[in-house]
Measured scan of single mutants.
Amino acid sequence: TTKIQIRLADGSRLIQRFNSTHRILDVRNFIVQSRPEFAALDFILVTSFPNKELTDESLTLLEADILNTVLLQQ
């Protein structure tokens, strides 16, 4: 498993454990389930350093190389 910290656009944080085989789409779905107010918003996930937009949501967390990292919601 891996721990992902997500810094949300409103300044708050979410921390969740995922399997390395989960997909970026699963992280997006977790955000929307945790904070339904973001469901209607068009947002992207970005790595904190170096900044990289995670546009291919079909990638696993392992394939995207974002295990144990911080993601930013923009």
Rank of each mutant, 00 (worst) to 15 (best):
T47M: 11
L61K: 03
G11S: 10
S48V: 12
A9Q: 11
I15V: 12
V32K: 04
A64I: 07
L72V: 14
A39L: 05
N68V: 03
E63A: 11
I24W: 02
L67V: 11
T60P: 03
K3A: 04
Q33C: 04
L41K: 12
F30W: 07
L62G: 15
L61G: 05
F18L: 00
E63L: 02
A39K: 13
T1G: 10
S34I: 11
H22E: 14
T21P: 02
T60E: 07
E37K: 03
A64R: 00
T69C: 10
E57Y: 06
E53T: 10
L61H: 09
R17N: 14
L67F: 12
R17W: 08
T2I: 14
T1W: 07
T1N: 07
F30Y: 09
L25F: 08
F30G: 07
I24C: 00
F43V: 03
A40W: 05
K52M: 05
V70Y: 00
S34R: 10
N51S: 13
A40Q: 11
T55E: 07
P50N: 15
F18Y: 11
S12D: 02
R17Y: 08
I66D: 06
A40S: 14
R13D: 07
R23Y: 06
N68K: 00
R35C: 01
L67I: 11
Q33E: 09
G11R: 01
F43R: 03
S58C: 13
S48D: 09
H22C: 15
T60W: 01
V70I: 13
I44Q: 04
L59H: 06
P50M: 06
T1S: 10
V27R: 02
N68D: 14
L62M: 12
L45M: 05
P50A: 11
L67S: 14
V32I: 10
L72P: 02
L62T: 12
Q74F: 04
F43L: 07
V70D: 09
L14P: 02
S12F: 08
I66H: 09
E53W: 07
E37Q: 05
N68T: 04
Q73I: 14
F38Q: 10
L41A: 08
L25W: 11
A40N: 11
E57V: 08
L71P: 06
A39E: 12
T60Y: 07
F38S: 03
D42P: 12
T2R: 08
R13K: 09
T21S: 11
L62H: 12
V70R: 14
Q16H: 14
T1C: 15
S58F: 09
A64T: 01
L61F: 05
D10Y: 08
K52H: 09
T55D: 04
L25G: 10
K3V: 13
T60I: 00
R7M: 14
D56S: 02
V46N: 02
T2Q: 11
V70N: 10
I31T: 02
D56T: 03
S20M: 12
I66R: 03
T69A: 10
A39I: 11
Q33K: 12
R23H: 02
L62A: 15
F43A: 09
K52G: 00
T1P: 01
T55N: 11
F49M: 03
I66Q: 06
D42N: 15
E63S: 06
I15S: 11
V70K: 15
T69K: 10
V32T: 07
L72D: 11
R13W: 14
L62C: 13
F49I: 09
L45W: 00
R28V: 08
E53L: 08
S48M: 11
I15N: 08
L41G: 10
T21D: 12
S48W: 10
S12T: 13
L25M: 14
L8N: 07
S48L: 13
N51M: 13
D26E: 03
L62E: 15
T55Q: 09
R17P: 06
F30S: 01
A40I: 00
L8H: 08
D26M: 01
Q73M: 15
F18E: 11
F18K: 06
T21A: 12
I24V: 08
L41E: 13
R28S: 01
V27Q: 03
V27T: 04
